[in-house]
Design a protein around this nucleic acid. Structure first.
Lengths: 163, 163
DNA sequence: TATTGTTATACTCTATAACTATA
DNA sequence: TATAGTTATAGAGTATAACAATA
């Protein structure tokens, strides 16, 4: 150690900046931090519309696949059937989706978007895209595409390993 | 529509596969799904060691920056001071870290790793790296580096925009 | 027996606010 | 006045288990 300075009488809080951590080099750690940033930003942007991420995702799937059953939506979103009940309840109360009988299987509730639901989804998808444009403005178009490709590749890899 | 088949009497559940969703093209959605996969995998891998991600992160920062104060650790991890109390309590009970008086400011608890804490961290960082090697084996070395770089760039961008 | 939707329940994670002791 | 650590509390999100209706 080439530190010839006299020993300080007492440390000062201002001097206690910590070392950069090895955590910064871990994909998992950075993934979590970025997820939290993006998720918070999404919620802040759409809180006036009462549209947290998983509610928007549910509306999207129902709008794109009218007649889809709840179990299938839950499976696509990677959540439990039970967790989806409250989300669909909320969307139904707001007049954005409807539960209808499914011809051929009376256990099933087929989920359909209403006209208002389709309109909300169409406005939403534009707003969400604009939100991503803004939140990811530090990335070039190519970098953003690359990021998307890498994330999709990881998901595909996990899917494969579960077989 | 070039569908000349006769109309089915009743739909069948087996035929109700939903459309691929526009969600799949959103960075935020894929980020969340990948975060959940990696986080679950981490917890599963280290549950025998009682070492969820944020406990390991806390131990890492204390091991790398002995004497760091709690507020600084919370700031680095992006969580509230109050949330860190239980984590440090747990690490202290397990004999991995110690709260010591901070010379010069009696409000501060300086956090130090014990010998056992340093050993646990050293074993942990190897295990975590091995975990990432396994969980991200579908990516080439170059892809993994690129992903890390992109995630860090997003974090830096958010940090910049908060100024 | 298995599956769909539902309810009840509990647990994790986190944020907020208020308190104390110090500065 | 402001800050470090702490406690209490509440909320969001999610998972598990059990149930009725139906297959």
């Amino acid at each position: 150690m080439a530190n010839n300075a006299p020993k300080a009488a007492a440390a000062r809080v201002e001097d206690m900046a910590a070392q950069p951590s090895v955590l910064e080099s871990l994909v998992g750690y950075n993934l979590k931090r970025v997820y939290i940033l993006m998720d918070s930003d999404f919620r802040r942007t759409f809180e006036g519309d009462d549209m947290p991420p998983r509610v928007f995702s549910t509306l999207a799937i129902i709008s794109e696949s009218p007649g889809v059953m709840q179990s299938e939506v839950a499976r696509m979103l990677g959540i439990e059937r039970s967790g989806l009940v409250a989300i669909v309840d909320g969307l139904e109360k707001r007049g954005l989706v409807e539960r209808k009988p499914f011809p051929g299987d009376r256990r099933v509730h087929a989920l359909h978007p209403t006209k208002a639901g389709r309109e909300t989804f169409n406005r939403g998808i534009n707003a969400v895209t604009a939100h991503e444009d803004s939140a990811l403005s530090m990335l070039s178009s190519g970098e953003r595409k690359k990021l998307l490709t890498l994330l999709q590749k990881i998901r595909a890899g996990f899917l494969e390993s579960e077989k």
